[in-house]
Design a protein around this nucleic acid. Structure first.
Lengths: 209, 209
DNA sequence: GAAGTAATTGATCTAGCGATCAATAGGAAA
DNA sequence: TTTCCTATTGATCGCTAGATCAATTACTTC
């Protein structure tokens, strides 16, 4: 009667297994937020014993930071692509606002907000949050600089204005998360505010809504 | 040798004790955030057995929501007072931006951000967050309406603009929390954006920085 | 002064967390 | 085939969380 029903073992190359575990963690974070990332939840999702997760990710704090960085990195790349398809700086700024406020990013807003909150108790995550914010800032700053070069925009501090724009958009997304309201209807107004900040003519930054 | 060193009991009127417990919880939340609100931490702070906290606050979720509501309520009243001392609508809007971005409210920004994150797993807190956001919105909307009445502002949707302003300011405060950067230097720029949103003349909303 | 009410205590229960580790077994190398 | 390495397992440790409750005791009432 020694029917110890043990899980069938499948041995994989370490790199592959490690990738699977991170993929499982990323999927959980996307669906349920960073706070749902527990050792056991990730193990179950990956179809693996909890000890194996710990083997590949010695501390959960690091895994959370890694997943956060991966998710935001993916989003930044996505937005870079959307925005890169538009040539005119003003239109590009409009496309940025559009895509960041189209309501399709609520999953990532959860991650973003939880990142802010959890970073206070997780140093690795705090570093990841800071790093990803700077990626955003760099992206936005380059759009503003382009606009200044073509004369569409006019500001002496594109870097600071970029931070301000990011803060605004993040805040509006966080608010829509908390209120269950739609962000889309703020896009046009945000474009007007953005024009004031970058020194563009009123109405020159187009949004699709 | 029956020296069971038990805590000396002090019996108080239920209302007084309940108030003490809430005060202890509020102090912890202010200093360390909402996530530091544990049954035992509150009990220790209040100088009381853990069971007594549970006696007065049957669930921690409710206590967290209550503390959140109290803290934000206090802040709203404070801002109402600051802003109420200014007669001119444009100056009042400037005073609002000033006081919300003077960097003295980092403690409450932590509470605010944690509220967003924790509300997803705490229904009572979610309701409190929604309620407090509406208080802010009402406050800002009334300023905008005043400005429209005097002709200083011009917008057909003061309520929507109020939501937008709140989102912007919250986002910038959250950002400064995450980056460890100063919010103050964004105040002037935020005033420019606010002018665009409420339909005020550029430079008409004054900030002290 | 006695009796009763209820405020208060602290131990205890269940549940979940991250982390650790001896034991097991898959698969490559000899 | 046999040997060896290590990927993998699952039990377990220590800790903290919220919640529960019988026992205790301070205070009110009669």
């Amino acid at each position: 009667m020694s029917s110890t029903s043990s899980r069938p073992r499948t041995r994989k190359p370490p790199a592959e297994r490690a990738a699977e575990i991170i993929a499982a963690a990323t999927a959980i974070a996307r669906e349920q937020g960073l706070s749902a990332l527990t050792l056991r939840a990730v193990a179950e999702r990956a179809g693996v014993a909890s000890g194996l997760v710990a083997h590949y990710q010695p501390t959960m704090d690091d895994l959370v930071a890694r997943v956060y960085a991966d998710l935001v990195d993916e989003e930044v790349r996505d937005v870079e692509q959307v925005v890169g398809a538009v040539a005119d700086p003003a239109a590009r700024l409009g496309a940025l606002i559009d895509t960041l406020m189209d309501g399709e990013r609520e999953e990532l807003t959860v991650v973003w907000v939880e990142g802010w909150a959890m970073a206070r108790r997780n140093d690795a995550l705090a570093r990841a949050v800071a790093a990803q914010m700077e990626r955003w800032q760099t992206l936005v700053e380059s759009i503003i600089e382009d606009g200044c070069r073509t004369g569409a925009f006019s500001t002496t501090e594109p870097g600071e204005v970029a931070w301000e724009l990011i803060g605004m958009i993040d805040g509006l997304n966080a608010q829509s998360l908390a209120r269950g309201a739609d962000t889309t209807r703020f896009a046009a107004r945000t474009a007007r505010a953005a024009e004031a900040l970058v020194g563009a003519a009123p109405g020159s930054v187009p949004v699709s809504s």
